[in-house]
């Protein structure tokens, strides 16, 4: 299992469109990808659960990746987050 944390710096937080792109990125991989905000958990492949976390600027999220391609998935998702949020 791979795990990393990320602090959102985008002033709008993770809002609709980028959330969609994030989900699109996550779906490229076979691994299960979960996202945590505090105690709340979402599935990074499901746009509604990602949006429901309501991640705002300055908040920290934790991403957990588990599966055959976890190595690539984790680094791709982390790079995507850094680029876009």
């Amino acid at each position: 299992m791979k795990e990393f944390e990320f602090v959102v710096t985008d002033p709008q937080g993770i809002h609709a469109r980028p959330a969609g792109l994030l989900v699109k990125e996550a779906k490229k991989f076979e691994s299960n990808i979960s996202v945590f905000k505090g105690a709340r958990k979402g599935d990074l492949k499901k746009i509604f659960t990602v949006m429901a976390l309501g991640v705002k600027q300055g908040e920290s999220i934790k991403v957990q990746v588990e599966g055959a391609d976890e190595e690539q998935a984790a680094s791709a998702v982390e790079a995507f987050l850094k680029e876009n949020f």
Partner: peptide, 8 residues
């Protein structure tokens, strides 16, 4: 993407 969402 919403229309494609598993939960939905």
């Amino acid at each position: 993407m919403m229309l494609d969402d598993d939960d939905y």
